[in-house]
């Protein structure tokens, strides 16, 4: 695929099982004295789609900047694709596509010219495939028609798409996306979701920070939640969900009878709202609930078992408050 080789080919001998991102005690104290990131131990396994969540100001972007070598940790260490950062970030970053805190390009250059700029500055970019890679990247994010428009004239979503295109100029092993769907329309959001799935199927690892928990829920295999600079939870989405409560909801005209049946079964927090009655399922099987309702003569119009929404778990973990923590 490449013709001219300069320097030695890089070793690919990093064990495939080694984490793609591993931080130990990673800490950033800004000059203002604020500890924006406080001793976090991130582990992102190869092939994972890792949702990096947390309220505004919880330290997500600061962490991402440290992962990419843009800012220096005050304490702790980062290993990115096996390379220490800072130290050998240039080696690792060639395999990383990143979108950090929104897209940023030269306003007076077209989308195409902006991508050309980044590609020309890349020592590992093959000049022979330059144009092809640019068109492919633009096509992937649906920007082909706007390639020659000035960046200044791009809409918010178009800017965001160009940022993603820049991350896809070269083959990657890891994508780090800081709020990639910010400002995108529903189609764009869906496209990004598909894109992430597709890339993940191709074997890429994706580290994505987002506030759209419904999105994260659909695409992520792993989740880490930040709160006030600390990584308060990390694990597979399924594990996280297991910690939450599953809710059973029955739709019926006989709400009072249904509520009593739930109580008799030992379901906690049974409550009526409209023509629905819901309760925590706990360890009881949904089948048992169905049988009990029918036996009690409850006219069942509908029965639903819902796993806890990520949003509820998120609020449970990071607190209800709307004000930023600091």
């Amino acid at each position: 695929m490449t013709t001219l080789v300069e320097g030695e080919a890089e070793d690919t001998a990093i064990p495939r099982s080694a984490p793609v991102i591993a931080t130990t005690g990673l800490t950033k104290r800004f000059r203002s004295g604020q500890v924006a990131v406080d001793h976090i131990d991130l582990t992102v396994e190869r092939g994972a789609v890792y949702g990096f969540l947390g309220p505004n100001g919880s330290g997500k972007t600061t962490t991402i900047r440290m992962l990419l070598g843009l800012i220096r940790p005050t304490d702790g260490a980062v290993s990115l694709l096996g390379d220490p950062v800072p130290g050998n970030e240039a080696h690792a970053l060639a395999k990383v596509g990143a979108l950090v805190e929104g897209p940023a390009f030269h306003p007076y250059l077209s989308g195409w010219a902006n991508l050309r700029r980044l590609d020309r500055m890349d020592e590992t970019a093959d000049p022979a495939t330059h144009e092809e890679r640019l068109s492919n990247a633009l096509a992937r994010v649906g920007l082909t028609a706007a390639a020659n428009k000035k960046f200044r004239q791009y809409s918010l979503g178009m800017k965001q798409r160009l940022g993603i295109a820049a991350a896809l100029l070269q083959p990657r092993e890891l994508l780090v996306l800081d709020e990639p769907t910010n400002g995108l329309d529903p189609q764009g959001t869906r496209e990004v979701r598909h894109l992430i799935r597709e890339l993940s199927d191709d074997g890429l690892t994706v580290f994505v920070s987002s506030h759209l928990l419904a999105e994260v829920e659909q695409i992520c295999t792993h989740v880490g939640i930040m709160s006030v600079g600390k990584l308060v939870t990390q694990g597979t989405l399924d594990d996280l969900r297991r910690g939450g409560t599953t809710i059973v909801t029955v739709t019926t005209p006989a709400t009072e009878l249904a509520r009593k049946t739930f109580a008799t079964l030992g379901l906690a927090d049974a409550a009526v709202s409209g023509d629905e009655v819901h309760a925590s399922l706990g360890s009881i099987e949904p089948e048992a609930v169905t049988v009990a309702l029918v036996n009690a003569g409850v006219p069942v119009r509908g029965l639903a078992v819902s796993k806890p929404a990520l949003e509820d778990l998120f609020v449970e973990i990071t607190g209800e408050g709307f004000d930023v923590a600091r």
């Binding site: 890089e10 020592e123 083959p171 191709d202």
Partner: peptide, 27 residues
Amino acid sequence: MSLAEAVGHGVVVPRRHRGALGRQLRS
């Protein structure tokens, strides 16, 4: 063409291409 075909399964071996400094300066 999906990116994967160019990539192999999530493995990338970046190489420096000759003339990089010239391209950077021109850019």
